[in-house]
Design a protein around this nucleic acid. Structure first.
Lengths: 344, 344
DNA sequence: CCTCCTCGTGGAATCGATTACACGGAGGAT
DNA sequence: ATCCTCCGTGTAATCGATTCCACGAGGAGG
């Protein structure tokens, strides 16, 4: 492949001048500029990004370490991250941690070895050594969706508290009193937060959240199924199950269907994270929707701010409730709260 | 960040020896080896992959340019590609072309600029200039899922011909005669192939595929909706719609529901590409399942074979029909063909 | 006419690794 | 004792870019 030397030879100039033309440096004559661009054209020359990165100590690349690519929520996040990064002149390398701390660390170290300019992470657990090390070492970094308390890194996330309150109000208005939750891993912030918000919202209606109604999941479909089976085996099963992510909701749907039960008549279902498929499930699933695309874009902007020496602050965006039919039809036509209803 | 020189100083040896230890070169004394590993440990040294790549002219990185990350089929493909690559000691950089040739070219050139060792592509269209150039320039390359005829690059894909025959036999046995298809872009091989296979299978049953029953889609949900609306507006609408991918099936479901029609009573639906959500839609969707994970793994193996100087041949794996309820219940209890039935 | 700036350009150092080659010392063969 | 071989190690070239510094030409100002 042609190198900068070949271009210089072809243009009859030095590599220094060629480099200056390539980087839009002002002090180059119009004539030289033309000869260089012509030579580049003729040779089909493309600069070697590896060599350039070595010299300039920047790769114009962002690392994104995600908990689980197969989760549509994270897929959408990854997509918006890549879009915004591209708009800002950066590439993105995605690492899929699959909810495994060891894999997360593997990706973090690999990305650091490649000298990415900044790191976007939605941490799997309370903080793997490699990640903490990166944060301490001063690698520009931003947490997205989940974060690690006590680590001084901006967080871009959405606050589901209000939406969970809306959800509980909606369920309460529907007459449901025994509400259960399939929680995420206690080591993740989103895992804990959603349970807390749920419990709080319940309390506001004078309801309790007994331990039997808190199932421990891991954000994967399988755990949603297992936990739901446990709920259904209870002497007094819950009237509604709230899954803390969309994959566990899918598992819950599995378990319910396997028993020959029907949603919402026999048991209601709601989920955190809205996805296109929830419109088409049987029945359509009531869910809490995060502004996923906006989160991804905000995270990239915050990270690039840090990289380029600006401040790059934390961002929190509200989630909102999307009512569908999986918890039962409202008895009265009016909405239980100022909440948008999706088209059926 | 500590460099190899710092390690050499710390260990009281030359950079050459340090490098030899790091790369497991045999001719190093046990003593030197220990002193180096100790120094590495103390300094928390990690080799700079950028510098290493510049010198060795290999990045141990694969590029994967995918048509659409939001499509669960490609997500799963990407996941299996990354897994197999990791097992073989390679990283993967994913580029999302979003079914846009210009974006595809953007990613191909970016990846080439970064000097990736090999390229995995599922081409969006008949072949963008950058991609063709890469193939001609001798970049190790493998097509996955889709390919470009006339370009000498191994192809890893699945053959849906037999499964489509099974599907048509199934529909025919159910009594359906007016069968329509939502085709993919004619510029893609999968777009054309699926229509051809469908038409062929129809012919085997003495059925025709009139032009009015071929809708032109683009593998995105929106086109599935539009095409389906067209079908429903026909004086004699089809009894079953076969979508050439899962996203267009989702769109079809939208369109059908918007008219207040029911599947399968009013109209049947089948899709190419099976995904977990099809089990939970209303009703569960009959689909043709590709061995996605195996495709991704085979593609990586073929590509790495090429990179490392071995041959790396094309691979074709069969797809299979998964019968669910979206085309109607079989009148008689026996299966119409030797086909697996999924659990309801 | 001389001096001083500015501008365009080229030479060469540099980034952090790998690796060809040279070299010194130890040990075996003669 | 001499020579050869082999082994472990170090010196320096190299990969392909960027960029500091020096240099020469040409114009402005004295």
């Amino acid at each position: 492949m042609a190198g900068i030397k070949d271009v210089a030879a072809e243009a009859g100039l030095s590599v220094a001048t060629v480099s200056r033309v390539l980087n839009g440096h002002p002090s180059v004559s119009e004539d030289a500029r033309r000869r260089v661009t012509d030579a580049v054209e003729r040779l089909g020359y493309r600069p070697n990004a590896v060599a350039r990165s070595l010299r300039t100590d920047q790769t114009r690349t962002l690392g994104l370490v995600i908990s689980d690519v197969m989760n549509p929520y994270f897929t959408e996040l990854a997509r918006s991250v890549e879009e915004e990064a591209r708009a800002l002149g950066y590439s993105v390398i995605i690492g899929n941690a699959d909810e495994r701390p060891d894999l997360q660390d593997h990706h973090v170290t690999t990305l650091l070895d490649r000298r990415i300019d900044g790191l976007l992470v939605s941490p799997t657990d309370g903080g793997s050594p490699g990640m903490l090390g990166a944060a301490r070492a001063g690698t520009p970094m931003v947490f997205v969706d989940r974060w690690i308390p006590g680590v001084d890194v901006p967080v871009v996330r959405s606050d589901g508290r209000a939406a969970v309150r809306d959800l509980v109000a909606h369920l309460h208005a529907l007459g449901h009193r025994r509400l259960a939750i399939i929680a995420g891993p206690a080591a993740t912030t989103t895992g804990r937060e959603r349970v807390d918000a749920f419990r709080e919202a319940l309390a506001a209606h004078g309801l309790e959240l007994p331990d039997a109604y808190i199932g421990q999941g891991d954000f994967q479909a399988g755990s949603g199924r297992r936990v739901t089976e446990g709920f259904l085996d209870l002497a007094e099963p819950p009237e509604v199950v709230f899954a803390a992510d969309n994959l566990m909701a899918l598992g819950a749907l599995d378990a319910i269907r396997a028993r020959g039960l029907r949603v919402p008549d026999d048991i209601g279902l709601a989920a955190f994270d809205d996805i296109p498929w929830f419109v088409h499930t049987d029945p359509p699933v009531t869910a809490i929707a995060q502004p996923t695309g906006e989160l991804g874009r905000a995270a990239v902007r915050a990270l690039v701010d840090r990289i380029e020496g600006r401040t790059g602050a934390s961002v929190t965006l509200p989630a909102r409730l999307v009512v569908r039919r999986s918890c039962g039809e409202p008895a009265s036509p009016e909405s239980p709260s100022p909440v948008r209803r999706s088209t059926p």
